[in-house]
């Protein structure tokens, strides 16, 4: 059995709306070992992104516990969670989230510099070369295609060598051919670095490539998948 990277126990998320309290997540539990990959699927509004946010320590659940790399996030404040994110977590977003005023190289260097990595530039250049953008270092995001922008985002995510990578619809803004290439890249780097991968997707094809698969419906884990998820605890 591999070491547990992510363990979630009965988390709920409720928010107050004009029409009263709304439950976005209901009793979600799961467990994921180091180096494994998990796909979260579900219809729009099923709570996928909310769950991803909570798993990554960007948000807090209304109840329940999330342990990331052995650290109980629910016991930490925002500063503590930020520390965990800095040390363990990488992100790839649907809308790339590159800073428009920074070149491709500077965008990749940003998290490395933020964490005080000494050879930030060299490492960023290596990763950009690794994603096939060695010739595009000084290009600004608006000068790059969607696929190229997402490759920069992937280079940025992997450059800081996270223990766990959260990807929110990484191919959502890309055509199918480019999307496939991007997925290939993510899994390749994931394999190389032994990163744990959690990805939110609409694409069944992508979900099928993951070790585990969790489907949300109206904030709850579908029963069949819940069983599967429970099995992970024993992985």
């Amino acid at each position: 059995m591999g070491q547990i990277m992510l363990q979630v126990n009965a988390i709920n998320k409720r928010v107050n709306t004009f029409n009263g309290e709304l439950e976005i997540l209901k009793d979600v539990s799961l467990s994921l070992n180091r180096g494994q990959s998990l796909a979260i699927t579900g219809a729009s509004g099923s709570g996928k992104s909310t769950l991803l946010g909570i798993l990554a320590g960007l948000d807090t659940p209304s109840s329940g516990r999330v342990c990331l790399a052995g650290v109980d996030l629910s016991e930490l404040d925002e500063e503590g969670r930020a520390r965990v994110r800095a040390e363990q977590v990488g992100f790839v977003f649907q809308s790339f989230q590159l800073l428009p005023g920074l070149t491709a190289l500077e965008n990749v260097m940003l998290p490395l510099e933020l964490h005080g990595v000494g050879s930030a530039k060299k490492r960023a250049e290596n990763f950009l070369a690794r994603v096939g953008l060695a010739e595009r270092l000084s290009h600004y995001p608006k000068q790059l295609s969607g696929g190229e922008q997402q490759r920069v985002a992937i280079a940025r995510a992997f450059a800081s060598e996270p223990k766990i990578l959260f990807a929110d619809e990484p191919t959502g803004n890309l055509d199918s051919v480019t999307g496939a290439k991007i997925i290939e890249l993510v899994f390749e780097l994931n394999r190389e670095q032994g990163t744990t991968l959690v990805l939110v997707t609409h694409e069944q094809r992508l979900a099928d490539r993951c070790d585990c698969h969790l489907t949300l419906e109206a904030g709850a884990v579908l029963p069949s998948v819940e069983q599967q998820a429970t099995e992970f605890l024993s992985c």
Binding site: R83, R85, A86, L114, H115
Partner: peptide, 16 residues
């Protein structure tokens, strides 16, 4: 606003 959200997601604390 987006830059700060990104930096925070990358682990930058409020103080930082």
């Amino acid at each position: 606003t987006e830059q700060v959200a990104l930096l925070k997601s990358l682990g930058a604390s409020s103080w930082k």
